[in-house]
Each structure stands twice: as structure tokens, then as C-alpha cells.
Amino acid sequence: MIQIENASRWFGQVIGVNDVTHTIEPGVTALLGMNGAGKSTLLRLITGQIRPTTGSIKVFGNEPFANPEVYKRMGYCPEIDQFYEHRTGRQFVNYLARLAGMSAAEAKTRTDEVLHEVGMADRADKKLAGYSKGMRQRIKLAQAILHDPDIILLDEPLNGLDPVGRREFMSYLHTLAERGKTILVSSHILFEVEQMTKSIMLLHRGRLLAAGDVSLIREYIDKYPHRVRIETPQPREVAAKLIQLPYVLKVEFDEWRGGIELQTRELNQFFAFLPTLTTEENFTITGFSSPDNNLESIFHYLIE
């Protein structure tokens, strides 16, 4: 859908995106990175607002820069929310529908449709000036999906939504993804991303640091051994046993909460061995988990 090949973009001496190569497939992909990592530049490159300095970006096989053919199939929901404040949400969306080239009647029905889909049908006749952040996000989404695009780019779309709104928004994104749309979402809130998708692109200082499936990425991080927490009333006995395993690198006792935390390079072998402790050797273990098996840890491991 979106093919990025060795794309770089700099502004004077400031580099926004540095030699990024990746293909974004249909479904939800999350775009992650710190502030200033180049996420917005990448979104602007894909939406054709700017042109890569070197390399190429193809959307449906075409260059997006100043290309109305691409724009017709692309919806963009920017981070900023400054609208025509004195208009109502409905007027605003309707106006954009007309700008997209729909006839008056078509624009009206389509406006009603999308407002209904984003759950704003009942509130769209108030002036935009009085909208809460969550309502603004919905209106922004509504205008992005107006022309039923195949690619939807969303910049921090969940900001300001309350938990209910968040959940609705995410399930709506899933519906869109199931219809075969390509959705690229930039977000800072990692637990949200975790609920949305497994597929991520992580930018750091303009470079593409990691891309693909989260669990696959975790397996490739060699620098940091996997951490495993074990809850047990006999920590020293369990530790004495486990430290003999060649792939266990380190065992720590958690004085505060009890139990032990260990580090291993071979997660698979370790978990294959663990049942022998309880089923054959009769140790008491009440629980175990991998505290670093989440997006947040992966993010930190990669960035630091």
C-alpha cells in the first residue's frame, strides 16, 4: 500500500527522516517515537505535503507529492485542532465534503453518514468553539473518512478522549481495518497502541529503529536478556535451583514484594524447564510472569 524506499528528508541542516525503508500493509500500524523523532515528517511525506529529499515514497504505486489521484484515496487526521470555530461540526464536515468534490446532495448524505459513524450525529449542530477535545477528535476523524479513503493517517487521534471514547474509537478503527483499509496511527500512549495493533514502526532521531510485529521484535533484542518474575514463599531454594541452569544469567531477590526476578537469554528453554520445579520437585510457586514482555519495555530497550 505504502512503499517507502530509502526516503530521507531534511530541512536545511535539520534532518526529519533519515533513510527509511518500509512497506506498510493494510491493517493498523502504529507509528511510535519520542517527540521530534520524525513521525510528523514521515506523515507529511506520505500525505504528499512535502517531498523526500532523497529516496522515494509510493502510495498505490504513485508519488504522493502534489498528486490529487493519491489524495482522493487518502484521509488524514492531523494533530492540531484549529477549525472554523464559529461553524458547527456538521457545517465543517459538509464544507470539506464539498471541497472533496461531492455534489450538494451527496455531501449532505455522506456528512450525515460519517457523523453517525464517529458517534457525533446528535452533537454535530453545536458550534465547534464549544467542542471538547474528544469531540474535536471525532470531527477530525469524520473529515478523514469522508471520501471513504483506502489509507487513513491519524496523528495522535486518541488525545483527550475519555476511556469510553477511546474504546469506541479503537473498535471503530478495527472495523475500518477489517474493511481492508490501511491505517497508520501515531501515538505516544503505548498501552493504547498495544490494544490497537501488534504492528509497529519505531522511529528514533529520524531513523527507523524497528518495524514489524511486537513479539517478533522482542525476540530480536539480544542486548537485554528476558526478565522473569517468580512468586514463591521459598525464594532462596528456588533461586539455588534455577541459578544452575546455564541460560540463567542473574537472579535477584525482591526484598520489597518478595519473590525473585531472574534474567535469561533462552526464554523458550527456561519455560520448558520451569514445570519440573513444581510438578517433579515439589517447590511452591504461586505465580510467574515476564515483566518486560510489553511494548513499553520494548520501546525503552530499543531507544536506550
Binding site: 519455560f271 520448558a272 514445570p275 513444581t278 504461586t286 505465580g287 510472569s289 515476564s290
Partner: peptide, 25 residues
Amino acid sequence: PPEELLRVVQRAAIESGAQVRGFET
């Protein structure tokens, strides 16, 4: 109790060829 449940779960896992990666209340 949790430690007994874990034993049951792990035996079942071995029997069914699955691998338990986490066990928590």
C-alpha cells in the same frame, strides 16, 4: 490454592504440548 492450580495447569500443558509463559492471579 494457586500453587496446586499451577501444578494442574503445568501438567496439562506438558500433556498437551503447550508451554506456560505466565501464571498470575
